[in-house]
């Protein structure tokens, strides 16, 4: 997994609450059996005026000029900011893969849905929870100057706004450690293989019907 330490970037403002994973990546793209290539379909229904599928070349489609992702002022932003309950709905990790594949490294919101939140950490995408007031301040900064640069410092657990204001965020130490070091969680867990085997032997004695 790609490590995350410090990212400095413009911010893409997506001024919506309850952005669900169906909106982040619609169902027709979940038929892909790959992990990559979802970036061109990120926010597909909002981003394009005509319908798309895996078989249609996105370059041939009509972008929706009203949608913020198509606003050239925000091109190259690696940080997305949105309102409450970002990533609600389906467990599809494709939503995180699409954000990552598009080029986002972090999402800032006042709250995230639980499954989306944990999926982020498996893919080097940092979800940052700030207060609604802090998120509002970020929206206002971006509205005033789309080119303004924000810095997310994971080791320090801070977001620095262009005005100099610094917002602190919480993150579980386990998530932080794995993200900073880009660690493979399966490899780490398998280091506890003996503990898993010991647990399993005990469980087999206590609830043998689970192992029939």
């Amino acid at each position: 997994m790609r490590a995350f330490t410090v990212v400095t970037s413009k911010v893409l403002p997506l001024d919506r609450a309850n952005v669900d994973t169906d909106a982040i990546i619609p169902k027709q793209y979940l038929k892909s059996i790959r992990r990559t290539g979802f970036g061109p379909f990120l926010f597909d229904d909002w981003r394009y005026l005509d319908p798309g599928t895996l078989e249609i070349d996105p370059a041939t489609r009509r972008p929706n000029p009203e949608f913020v992702l198509n606003d050239p002022r925000h091109a190259g932003a690696q940080i997305l900011v949105a309102r409450d309950n970002f990533g609600c709905g389906s467990s599809r990790e494709h939503a995180v893969w699409a954000l990552d594949d598009y080029g986002f490294r972090a999402v800032i919101a006042p709250s995230f849905a639980d499954i989306f939140y944990s999926n982020c950490f498996k893919n080097g995408l940092l979800p940052v929870v700030l207060t609604a007031e802090e998120v509002q301040a970020i929206f206002e900064c971006v509205a005033a100057d789309a080119d303004a640069l924000f810095t997310i410092d994971l080791p320090a657990q801070t977001v620095r706004l262009p005005c100099g204001r610094v917002c602190r965020f919480d993150i579980h130490p386990h998530h932080k450690h794995n993200l900073i070091n880009g660690l493979d969680e399966i490899g780490l867990t398998l280091a506890h293989a003996d503990a898993i085997k010991a647990y399993e032997a005990k469980r087999r004695r206590e609830a043998p019907w689970l192992f029939e």
Binding site: S91, E93, H94, K122, I186, I196, E200
Partner: peptide
């Protein structure tokens, strides 16, 4: 019983466990 992402599907397949924070 709860839903998981694909990385966790792989984690469960490989280890029969998940690393979780108690809700």
């Amino acid at each position: 019983a709860f839903g998981i992402g694909t990385s966790e599907v792989e984690h469960v397949l490989a280890t029969q466990t998940l690393v979780l924070k108690k809700a």
